[in-house]
């Protein structure tokens, strides 16, 4: 995908290593507004490290990242304020209720009490979660917790949504419901979405696909184009074909 200055996310030439072990090698990713972009990769491919760099938890050893038009290094706070994140592991505080968790998030983002109250009510109602607002997180099912995390990630009206294997541990029905919720958000709010996963069925109809393999972008393209070019019927088939081809080339 060519560089787009209005993109939700633009990551250029990202390099990172743990000690001498390279983890990301010259990674380039663009997520335009209103597009659902999939980042496919097996465990250990570097997805979570890339997400940690995009969210400022780690500093890249090279390259540039722009989020919502803000340079992550120069305008860190504005850039971080433009991201909504659903982490791989649940990050709701289990000792607090749903509303207390959401209020905490609003506080962190400087949303006033009255505004926060309104936003939380509207967002919970939008996902059919209004009845749960006084419940402790420990009383929610895994699917409900994930939906609350999605609600939380959008309370501050981000321009870009980052999801790191958000459906891990959910059953198929809950996974698909979660995916459709995110796709609806992407369209309704013109949000750029970057969805990392190794579960291919979640991203069959993604607008654009990046395949991250051993820290490098192995292939990228529109999902339809990629399938057509490689003569495959599904993203799962395509992924298996491309990564095994890469493994064969290495063994030679």
């Amino acid at each position: 995908m060519t560089a787009d200055t209005n993109a939700s996310l633009s990551a250029r030439n990202i390099n990172f290593s743990f000690g001498r072990k390279p983890v990301l090698d010259n990674v380039q990713i663009d997520v335009p507004n209103g597009k659902f972009v999939a980042l496919l990769g097996q465990n250990g491919a570097g997805k979570t490290t890339l997400f940690s760099i995009i969210t400022g938890l780690y500093a890249a050893h090279g390259g540039e990242i722009s989020i919502g038009g803000f340079d992550l290094r120069k305008n860190t706070q504005q850039a971080l304020g433009s991201i909504g994140v659903v982490f791989q592991r649940p990050t709701l505080d289990r000792d607090l209720t749903v509303r207390q968790n959401l209020r905490y998030f609003c506080n962190l983002h400087g949303i006033s009490a009255a505004d926060a109250h309104q936003r939380i009510d509207n967002a919970l109602a939008g996902y059919g979660l209004s009845d749960l607002h006084k419940r402790k997180v420990t009383q929610l099912s895994g699917g409900q917790q994930r939906r609350v995390e999605l609600v939380r990630a959008t309370l501050h009206d981000p321009r870009f949504l980052l999801l790191d294997e958000p459906t891990v541990g959910l059953d198929h029905a809950n996974r698909m419901e979660f995916v459709s919720n995110v796709k609806a958000l992407c369209k309704e709010r013109s949000l750029g979405v970057l969805w990392a996963t190794h579960l291919m069925d979640e991203v069959e109809d993604a607008d654009y696909v990046y395949i991250l393999h051993h820290g490098k972008i192995l292939f990228e393209g529109g999902s339809g184009d990629l399938l057509e070019t490689h003569g495959k019927n599904s993203i799962a088939e395509l992924y298996s074909h491309l990564t095994s081809k890469q493994a064969d080339a290495k063994s030679l």
């Binding site: 400022g56 938890l57 971080l80 994140v85």
Partner: peptide
């Protein structure tokens, strides 16, 4: 993971 929520705040 909940520390990450704090550290990615703007």
């Amino acid at each position: 993971g909940s520390m990450r929520l704090l550290l990615v705040s703007p």
